[in-house]
Amino acid sequence: MTALNDRQADGAARDAVEVMQRAHMAELALCDRLEEIADSLPNGLDRRKCILAARALGPTMAKIHRFEEHRIFPHFCMRLGHSVESGKTIERLTNEHLEDEGYAAELRDALRSAARHGEADSPETLGFMLRGYFGAVRRHVAFERDHVIALLVPAG
């Protein structure tokens, strides 16, 4: 019975990882769009791009994070035998999720304002916010890929 349970757990982990990988691709595509906006500042602001990016920073990201926290992280901890290290890693990633969500809300407001006015109140500030956000998200995704996913879905 244990072998069957192990296979079921492995299958559930693989299924969750597939969802997470698709979510990572969406997050990285959003980072690319945010970088395009940052690169267009101060004079080439595209209102439509700002609106679409602001929408993408909405509740979907929180749903992705809750999915990871409830479906991926338990598999990760189980794979590492619920070690102190796995607990610290999960705590770090969960805190990053909360920070990213708070920062995304501020960025969403700034992008909406820029779209509404046709220009950023402060292009330097908006550029700094955009670059800070997409840089942090890219690092977070890279860590999850290299450490969490790699452990759950070994090569081969």
Rank of each mutant, 00 (worst) to 15 (best):
A56S: 09
D32C: 05
V137H: 03
D109R: 15
R108Y: 08
T94Q: 10
A114D: 11
A23G: 13
R22M: 06
R33D: 05
R116E: 14
R108E: 14
E27A: 04
K88S: 15
E144N: 02
P123V: 05
C50M: 06
R66L: 12
L30K: 02
G58L: 00
I72T: 05
R66G: 05
L111N: 08
E144G: 00
E99L: 09
T89P: 08
R66N: 11
R66S: 13
R22N: 07
T125K: 11
A136E: 04
Y133D: 00
G132I: 11
A26P: 03
R47A: 13
F134Q: 09
T60W: 06
M78E: 15
S83N: 15
G58D: 11
T60H: 05
H75D: 10
V141S: 03
R22A: 11
S83C: 14
I64E: 12
F134G: 05
V17P: 09
A120Y: 14
A136N: 01
A29E: 02
I37N: 02
G118R: 07
K88H: 14
H82E: 15
R108Q: 14
R66V: 11
D39A: 15
K63H: 10
Q21R: 14
Q21I: 14
T60K: 06
L30N: 01
R112C: 15
F73L: 06
A110P: 11
T60V: 04
L130Q: 06
E85I: 15
L57H: 05
H24V: 00
K49Y: 11
L126Q: 01
C31D: 03
R139M: 00
